[in-house]
């Protein structure tokens, strides 16, 4: 199994933990992994990304355009920014919550994440948009966005990782006091992905 995964978001959103969990879960299955992420100045509120590559015969951690199987986007605008990396037929998982850049607050121009979501809806065949704000409210923590997105990608089948793979790695890598919360986040996305696929199956039948 060879997989190329792009994670993207805004500095400070927790993309790094999500990428570490994917890498650890893949390694546990005996797969080789390479990854790269933004470190340094851009972390201070800038656009950040991680590239993760799973499989044999890899030389570099960087993914070329049109080569990503999955994009996990923590912010709609960042999803659009990284969309050229997604291959045809690839899966995008996107958090619906927009993050306003400081520049638009200053200039008074407003950045509307709805436009980004509309663009994604129109142009991405396999798209899962997660209402992370609502989900975090229901789960009772604002810290589970990364697990929500990760879970959605797992249950969509795009990562090549199973429910068991991801639960095991969360137990191993995340402090115990967060386990219950993270398992609830996974249950939430599992339900969401099932409902979503039922909905789209229904659409196809019509």
């Amino acid at each position: 199994m060879n997989k190329n995964i792009v994670l993207c978001g805004v500095g400070g959103q927790g993309t790094v933990l999500a990428s570490k969990l994917i890498a650890a879960a893949a390694m546990k299955k005996g797969l080789s992994v390479m990854s790269a992420e933004t470190i340094g100045m851009a972390q201070r509120g800038g656009s950040v990304f991680s590239h993760i590559r799973i499989g044999e015969g890899l030389h570099s951690p960087m993914i070329g355009r049109g080569k990503a199987d999955v994009i996990l986007a923590f912010e709609p605008g960042e999803a659009v920014r990284m969309l050229p990396y997604l291959r045809k037929g690839g899966q995008a998982v996107v958090s619906a919550r927009g993050i306003m850049p400081v520049t638009s607050a200053l200039s008074g121009s407003s950045y509307k994440s709805e436009y980004m979501l509309a663009y994604l809806e129109k142009n991405v065949e396999h798209l899962l948009v997660i209402d992370t704000e609502r989900a975090c409210g229901e789960i009772g923590s604002s810290k589970v966005i990364n697990i929500l997105l990760l879970g959605a990608a797992v249950y969509s089948g795009a990562l090549g990782l199973s429910d068991r793979d991801i639960k095991e790695i969360i137990k191993e890598r995340v402090p115990e006091r967060f386990h219950e919360m993270n398992l609830r986040a996974l249950a939430y996305t599992k339900e969401y992905v099932i409902q979503n696929s039922l909905k789209s199956a229904g659409k196809e039948r019509q």
């Binding site: 201070r44 800038g46 049109g66 045809k88 850049p101």
Partner: peptide, 22 residues
């Protein structure tokens, strides 16, 4: 021709996110 999923219509203007003091 590129194999990516990005598409015919140009994307909306992307947010500019220069690094800032926390």
């Amino acid at each position: 021709s590129t194999d990516d999923a990005s598409c015919a219509d140009a994307p909306p203007a992307l947010p500019v996110r220069p690094p800032v003091l926390c």
